[in-house]
Simulated assay, not measured.
Amino acid sequence: MKARVMDGCISCGACVTTCPEVFSFDEDGLAEACGEVASEYEEAAKEARDDCPVSVIDIVE
């Protein structure tokens, strides 16, 4: 499974709070994803995607 943050992030921090193992802030303060999601973090990554208020997180299984 891979995660990515598309254009339009508003830096709310929901994904970073929900799944810091996958999501973090870049130097511009926008969320970014590590790419490959380890199996133990898949559910948290999906929750972060679902909680994103601007729906800019994409997860490909």
Rank of each mutant, 00 (worst) to 15 (best):
C34T: 14
R49L: 04
E43H: 06
A31K: 09
E27N: 10
V54Q: 05
I57Q: 02
E40I: 05
E43N: 07
L30V: 05
C15F: 11
K46V: 13
V54W: 02
E61F: 04
A33G: 09
A33F: 04
D58L: 08
Y41R: 00
M6P: 00
L30C: 10
S24Q: 08
E47K: 10
G35R: 06
D51W: 07
D50N: 14
V37M: 02
G8C: 11
G35P: 10
D28C: 14
F25A: 08
G8W: 04
V37G: 02
S11A: 15
C9N: 05
K46G: 01
C12S: 07
G8I: 05
K2P: 04
A33Q: 01
D58A: 07
A3C: 09
D58C: 05
A31Y: 02
C19H: 12
G8S: 12
T17V: 12
V22W: 11
V56W: 04
G13H: 12
V56I: 08
A38K: 15
A31E: 05
A3R: 09
V16Y: 03
V22F: 06
A48W: 02
A48I: 10
K2E: 05
F23G: 13
D26M: 01
G35E: 06
E21D: 13
C19A: 15
E61W: 03
C15G: 12
F25D: 10
C19R: 14
A44Y: 11
V54L: 05
L30A: 07
R49Y: 06
T18P: 08
C34K: 11
A14M: 14
C9G: 06
C12M: 07
V16S: 11
E36K: 03
R4W: 00
I57E: 00
C12P: 10
E42C: 08
M6W: 01
E43P: 01
D7Q: 15
R49E: 10
M1Q: 09
A14Y: 10
E40Q: 11
D51N: 14
E61R: 07
A48K: 06
Y41E: 08
A48F: 07
E47Y: 05
P20I: 07
T17H: 09
A31T: 08
C9A: 06
A3D: 10
K46F: 03
S39Q: 13
